[in-house]
Simulated assay, not measured.
Amino acid sequence: MPKAWPEGSGGRRLRWMGPAAIVLTLLGCGQGPGTAPVSGVVQFDGVPVTQGTVSFYPVAGGRPATGKLGPGGAFELSTFGNGDGALLGGHKVTISAMELINAPPPPKSLSEEISQSAPPPKAGPKARWIVPEKYSAQATSGLTATVVGGTNLIEFDLP
């Protein structure tokens, strides 16, 4: 059986210090280091890129921010939670956008998926880059951005 704290020794206070410290630590954490909202648009040869992802990798290290491309080539970045943006400072940027060619349409139901479980045809789906593949890697994209406090609107018009 555990030993009880003596009443006169301050043991009551000590029992609450551990849980109190944990609560205070968690309350102080927030969402992590400073972030700022980042949104923007991606175009390739003047045409909006409507599928794929944009990623910002902090030059100083830390968690990258990502966002999906959507209608009009628009994106919104998230690092720790939905739409919270990216860490402040300089970033290397990647844009990865490809589509599958000759891919069968996704099944509409489980029974349709089961019936399509036959061996794939010899000429299977192939990936086609919507923007050049070089933009999908930090080492070759050549894209950078700086995130500052406040709202950031960053556009990429890829050649």
Rank of each mutant, 00 (worst) to 15 (best):
A4G: 14
W5Q: 10
P6Q: 14
E7H: 07
R12C: 01
R15Q: 11
W16P: 00
M17C: 11
M17N: 06
P19E: 08
A21G: 09
I22L: 15
V23L: 12
L24H: 08
T25A: 11
T25N: 05
L27A: 10
G28N: 03
C29W: 11
Q31W: 11
P33S: 14
G34Y: 03
T35I: 06
P37S: 11
P37W: 02
V38P: 00
V38A: 07
G40F: 12
G40W: 08
V41C: 02
V41F: 05
V41D: 01
V42G: 00
V42R: 00
Q43C: 08
Q43K: 12
F44H: 13
F44R: 03
D45L: 10
V47M: 10
V47A: 07
P48Q: 07
V49E: 02
T50L: 02
Q51Y: 10
T53K: 09
T53H: 14
V59K: 15
R63M: 12
P64C: 06
G67H: 06
G67D: 02
K68G: 07
L69F: 09
P71Y: 02
G72M: 05
G73S: 04
G73L: 03
A74W: 01
E76C: 01
E76F: 01
F80T: 15
N82S: 09
D84R: 02
A86V: 08
A86Y: 02
L88C: 03
H91S: 09
K92P: 00
V93T: 03
T94V: 02
T94E: 09
I95E: 01
I95S: 03
M98E: 14
I101E: 12
A103Q: 12
P106R: 13
P107M: 15
S109L: 13
S109C: 13
L110C: 05
E112V: 12
E113D: 08
I114P: 00
Q116L: 09
A118D: 07
P121N: 04
P121L: 09
G124P: 10
P125C: 06
P125S: 14
K126V: 05
A127G: 14
R128G: 04
R128T: 08
W129H: 14
P132G: 06
Y135Q: 00
Y135F: 12
A137P: 11
Q138T: 03
A139R: 12
T140F: 07
S141P: 04
G142V: 00
G142K: 02
T144W: 11
T144Q: 14
A145H: 04
T146M: 13
V148I: 06
V148Q: 13
G149A: 13
G150V: 09
G150M: 07
G150L: 05
N152L: 11
E155H: 11
F156R: 00
D157N: 15
D157K: 10
L158K: 08
P159I: 05
